[in-house]
Design a binder for these strands. Structure first.
Lengths: 333, 333
DNA sequence: CTACGCTGTGAGAGCGCTCACACAGAGAAA
DNA sequence: TTTCTCTGTGTGAGCGCTCTCACAGCGTAG
């Protein structure tokens, strides 16, 4: 097996023409059962595998999809978000016979290379994981007429799959209110990220529904990271020492809040209840385990793939999908 | 720009032949400066991008490398290991102008598909992340004469990049001994995984070097997961209530050990020092932050890519690389 | 002045496949 | 019988590129 067998070789050995073998390989109905059987036997015997490049050259389909993680978004690679989404995408693509190309554009040079790559139409579609509001890549991809699906982020006029951040935050606050908490504070995520803003909106909705007044003294600004949460939690306690609950827009922030609360002599959850967001490993392994809002990450990956495949098959541009989040009650609330 | 420009189009517009344009694109020295300039201008003007499939068809190179994550190894996707390795691989491949294809074979069907894919020589090389001792994929890849590099795992006669688990564990124990601990226990990883065995070896080496006796009563068997650690820690305390330090083979196990120790009335680190392994997010965000052994994950990814590229360029099969780990001293020891 | 390099360029073949079309043969309708 | 389906198969072109070979033009040596 010095040289890999071609269609031609299979055809000759099976005593048919190239075209017929091609038809068998591609499951064309216009082949007799007898012939199909013979050909498949020879395919098996010679270990024939179609040459992807040759096929792509004529069909103009690559059967490959790019997953673009734009910029150096450390946060994207965070457990369990990235891993879960990846798994979902992988499963769905694999079932459809598609390959996944992972493109991380961290530096400007890599980014330029990526743009050229996409411009070369080396993939049939693009999945993007991005948090930033202003990324020029989606526009480029659209201009290239490549099917595109965004994940974990929304952008007008584009197809995206996102989690219901508003609803998730709402649920968390509703739960706190239902357990009798009356001074419910929040530590927000970055205001320039959609997820951060949405979670704040959900917080407000929750308060409103519970008939609790919105108090700016109960809103601390964070950026999803723990350092910002330490500061915010301290400020909140200074302003409202009577607070009895905190909803943080991320798990690391919630954990940090727990730490600060304890160092200030509050018991969690007895004196102050705490809820996070993301349901990361951190939450599950914390002591006590953190009550947090769970996102269906794997499902999100699957939906992304599904919407992309639909577009690749020429179906009308699908509607964006927003997946529900749910509260995972553990030890801190 | 209905149809994408071809070499032919560039050639015509530049008033040269297809061959000459090809030479310019491929940086052949046999082109006059004048011609090169003209051609490049036209390339720019028309936005020409070479057709990858056509090129692959004749050169038999795909400029693509597969990263195979075999079986449903949840653990592989764990922070920061996978993310770090991935980043390292991405950077190195990108610099070499190579694409990264991510292949996750979770089910038997996906696995079969993957094998067929690799058999089709659709990639120029394979990187594998695997923990299991008995995986048949490396043998298959080798049989296909595809360059291969294993990561985080060792296998005789194959090229791999691994972390010095023995040395890392050794360091941890040496540190404990140096701070005056005398009854140093360990909670091991899975005995059927190389990393687990190596960390146990390092523990023994450390004890020996410090002149401490090896006591089976101080060795608890775990499987890297927290549940196993809870059990092991309990048993250890029953057998040796005098123990004053624990080296756990993973961060989740170390964290669980801390919890059990506290529930049994021990203070950490005052009464019992604890050290983990991996330097995960968990470790950094624990309270107090966990002292643990750090692995150079990003570097590991880069090395994997480097060794693979060397093989792809026809260089002699490189030697395996073992990267050093180092102790990250934080709050628990 | 002829012969021989050497450099830069062009022409042609062919990589392995799909797809449109041609066409042979069997059966049904005229 | 002839004609017209219909089914199954073969044939040829061509996807966009690289690579080998041929060769024109020039300088340099014999």
């Amino acid at each position: 097996m010095n040289t890999r067998p071609t269609l031609e070789a299979v055809a000759e050995r099976a005593g048919v023409s190239r075209g017929t073998v091609s038809r068998v390989i591609n499951d064309s109905p216009r082949v007799s059962a007898r012939t199909r059987e013979t050909v498949l036997a020879v395919v098996e015997e010679l270990g024939y595998v179609p040459n992807h490049a040759a096929r792509t050259l004529v069909t103009r389909r690559t059967d490959t999809v790019a997953l673009v993680v734009s910029e150096s978004e450390e946060r994207v690679f965070t457990e369990p978000f990235f891993a879960g989404v990846l798994r979902g995408i992988g499963t769905a693509l694999s079932a459809a016979g598609l390959q996944l190309l992972l493109a991380m554009a961290q530096s400007a040079a890599e980014r330029a290379r990526l743009e050229r790559y996409l411009a070369g139409h080396h993939v049939d579609g693009v999945l993007m994981l991005s948090q930033h509001d202003h990324d020029t890549l989606p526009a480029l991809v659209t201009r290239l007429r490549l099917p595109l699906v965004l994940g974990g982020h929304r952008q007008r006029a584009l197809v995206y799959v996102d989690v219901d951040n508003v609803g998730g935050a709402h649920q968390a606050v509703a739960y706190l209110a239902a357990s009798g908490r009356r001074a419910i504070a929040t530590i927000t995520g970055s205001p320039d990220m959609r997820a951060g803003r949405d979670r704040l909106t959900g917080y407000r909705d929750g308060l409103e529904e519970a008939g609790l007044a919105l108090d700016d003294g109960l809103v601390g600004t964070g950026d999803f990271g723990p350092e910002s949460a330490a500061r915010a939690m301290g400020d909140l306690l200074d302003q409202r020492p009577d607070l009895d609950a905190v909803f943080a827009a991320s798990d690391p922030m919630a954990l940090e809040a727990v730490r600060v609360l304890r160092s200030r002599g509050r018991r969690v959850p007895e004196d102050v209840a705490v809820i996070g967001f993301d349901d990361s490993d951190l939450a599950r392994h914390a002591d006590p385990p953190l009550t947090t809002v769970h996102q269906p990450v794997e499902r999100m990956g699957q939906e992304m793939a599904r919407l992309l495949i639909a577009q690749m098959n020429g179906m009308p541009v699908p509607r964006p999908v927003v997946l529900p989040a749910h509260l995972e009650v553990r030890g801190t609330a």
